[in-house]
Simulated scan of single mutants.
Amino acid sequence: MTDLLTIILLGIVEGVTEFLPVSSTGHLILAGALLGFKDEASGTFEIVIQLGAILSVIVLYWRRFWDVFVGLGRRDPRAIAFTRNVALAFLPSAVIGLIVYKMVKAMLESPMTVAVALVVGGIAILVIERLVRAPKVTNVEQMSWKVALGIGIIQCLAMVPGVSRSGATIMGALGLGVDRKTAAEFSFFLAVPTMLAASAYDLYKNAESIGSDGWLAIAIGFVVSFVVALLVIRWFLGIVTRHGFTPFAWYRIVAGGVAIVWLSQL
């Protein structure tokens, strides 16, 4: 598919950006364009290596997931509420994703779409951060089904590369009265079924076109993104707790602006 250094660099990009509100897919597309990474399997690579970062959530929050699993067996109300909220938030992207799959895959080939979405998304974060009121929800179990479903609907905006799945989820949660830390953690939990489903469906549609080199690249990218994401998640929660999401908004605007200028000259 491509050389080892490029694969490792893309794995690092994925691990760093997956849970930040800056769009990991968008960064992979821009990095791929910069590194000359483009073939028939690159779109699948950009989607599937995200599973490495998702695995880091399962590892870091294994006790939380285990407690929910055990609690479901005991019919614990908190475990039921957690599962209900994640399932409801996942549902819209599962349904709409199947409908617009081909359109989304086509947009993965447009770096300019990513660059513009980065800038627009950054501005949106700045606006939402100014308008957000005192939170009413301080943990995932406390969310109502309407809030969870609303977050899931807003997450669908992230099907446009550059919007950011975590960014849409977090900003949607803030707008619906969820506090920053809970919004960030809910985006982690929601990423698990969302990216598992997206990766499984993409592999189902494109497995035959990947080839042995492609599978090796995916495996390496998976491992690298997993290790890097393990280091990033705790750091991200610390930044969010102390400074909010404004630093990431300005990063998006600057990075997107630079990308627009660069792409315009190609």
Results as ranks from 00 to 15, higher is better:
Thr241Ala: 15
Ser225Glu: 10
Ile12Lys: 08
Tyr251Cys: 11
Ile239Thr: 14
Ala124Gln: 04
Lys102Cys: 06
Asp76Glu: 13
Met159Ser: 00
Ala53Tyr: 09
Phe45Arg: 02
Leu34His: 11
Val22Leu: 09
Ile239Arg: 11
Met112Tyr: 13
Ile8Pro: 02
Leu20Asn: 05
Leu20Pro: 09
Gly162Trp: 01
Val261Gly: 06
Asp67Asn: 12
Ile49Trp: 00
His27Thr: 11
Leu10Ser: 03
Val254Thr: 10
Ser93Asn: 00
Lys38Glu: 15
Leu34Phe: 15
Ala79Glu: 07
Asn85Gly: 00
Val95Pro: 08
Gly214Glu: 01
Thr246Arg: 14
Leu4Glu: 05
Met143Thr: 08
Leu176Asn: 14
Glu46Lys: 12
Arg74Phe: 00
Ile54Asn: 12
Gly167Thr: 03
Lys181Ala: 13
Leu118Ser: 08
Leu230Cys: 11
Gly36Met: 03
Ala183Trp: 01
Ile239Asp: 06
Leu230Ile: 11
Ala106Glu: 15
Phe189Pro: 06
Val132Lys: 14
Asn85Arg: 01
Pro21Trp: 01
Ile239Phe: 07
Ser93Ile: 11
Val22Glu: 02
Val100Trp: 15
Leu35Pro: 13
His27Val: 04
Leu60Met: 14
Leu35Ala: 02
Val178Thr: 14
Ile220Phe: 02
Arg63Ala: 02
Met195Lys: 03
Asp67Gln: 11
Val227Tyr: 03
Leu34Asn: 05
Gly150Met: 12
Pro21Ser: 05
Ile218Leu: 01
Val140Met: 03
Leu72Trp: 01
Ala53Ile: 02
Ile58Met: 13
Leu126Ala: 13
Ala124Asn: 07
Leu118His: 10
Ala115Met: 08
Ala33Pro: 03
Gln265Asp: 03
Met159Val: 02
